[in-house]
Nucleic acid binder design. Structure first.
Lengths: 198, 198
DNA sequence: TAAATAGGTTAGTAATACTTACTTACCTTA
DNA sequence: TAAGGTAAGTAAGTATTACTAACCTATTTA
């Protein structure tokens, strides 16, 4: 059920990371105490600080662990397609699905890390930048290939795509609502690519 | 310079709220201590708990204060317009501008409150719901009036609109970047209403 | 065999959100 | 005009919690 970490990490470290992951399904990060984490993991509080600089570092590393799953899932889906619009559609659908499958990941990424400045110097954020860059590249290629209108601002389009995805997930992440990712992504793509105006 | 609160609040309460507001321009909520707030306000820590249930309640009330400014600004702009598309465009532009002018407000709304469940029972969240409902109503009216395609899902369109706005502000809020709100909102509207696909 | 290293524990400490008991000043209204 | 009530504010805590330092013990390594 748990166990995303396959690395040759010491067992205690894995237990700690899984414990936080588990607790974050119910509570927000700030109201989870280090004592909580330790007892859930079945280790002592002190051990947390053997493996993690501080509580936030633990959060970032958990985030990074989930990122692996995310990246693999995304990459496995895009490559085969030739059309850039199709690629973007796949990214939208796949990202939505990833967030849906992996809600703790979504919760950390969308709600918990963004308010602490040092997150933006973390490895996890580097991965976000790569992901985000990928989208921009596809957009630019799409404009070059004549699939996307040339009067579209690439950065703006990326913003609309990312914003739509994230906002669509919020209800899910915050209230635990179910989300029909196929349907929602279709609706979003419909709006973004074909436009809402008659 | 400060002073948004005109209500007949006791002076200490106003000072406390303004103090938090001020501190939040530089730090994130969690790294601001109650001692910080008290000294900045020129009162004692105890007084905070005379007027606010806890630190988060203070945050929510500050948010509510800023909401007043926000609502007034928005409302003053929409009413005169007749076209629904135009109304939505104005909302996008005006919201972006509001966030830009009032960054502390944006920071609280987009980064700080969403991760604590009891925010969603606060008065502040009720105002968000009203704002959000307004957008949905305009969309539905737009479909009825034949301005917006009838195969568009109203909730999805709202999500795209809100998501685009919020994501566009993130850089601003997190990194303090400047944002050309007129330009950005134009780009966003261009994509959402006319579509990105050639 | 000595020593270093890895995995883990115990028992703290400092900081910080929040409380309780108290003071002072102001406003009723009888 | 004085008593009583209340609103505004203070002082001095307490309990919780993130984090630390020193210690233990087994297993590898030289």
């Amino acid at each position: 059920m748990e166990s995303e970490q396959k690395k040759s990490y010491p067992p205690g470290k894995i237990k700690i990371m899984n414990a936080l992951s588990e607790l974050m399904r119910e509570k927000d990060f700030h109201s989870i105490t280090t004592a909580d984490i330790a007892t859930t993991a079945g280790v002592t509080e002190g051990l947390i600080y053997k493996y993690f600089k501080d509580k936030k570092d633990l959060l970032y590393q958990v985030l990074n662990g989930h990122f692996q799953t995310f990246q693999n899932y995304i990459v496995s889906k895009i490559e085969t397609r030739k059309s850039n619009i199709e690629k973007l559609s796949i990214i939208i659908k796949t990202t939505l699905k990833s967030y849906s499958i992996n809600r703790v990941f979504a919760r950390i990424l969308l709600l918990e890390v963004r308010n602490s400045p040092n997150y933006f110097e973390s490895d996890a954020y580097d991965m976000v930048k790569i992901y985000s860059r990928t989208i921009l590249d596809i957009i630019n290629q799409g404009i070059k290939d004549g699939e996307i209108k040339e009067d579209i601002d690439p950065h703006a389009l990326r913003q609309v795509i990312l914003g739509s995805i994230e906002h669509a997930c919020l209800g899910e992440v915050i209230f635990g609502k179910e989300l029909d990712t196929d349907k929602v992504s279709e609706h979003i793509c419909n709006i973004i690519f074909r436009g809402a105006k008659k």
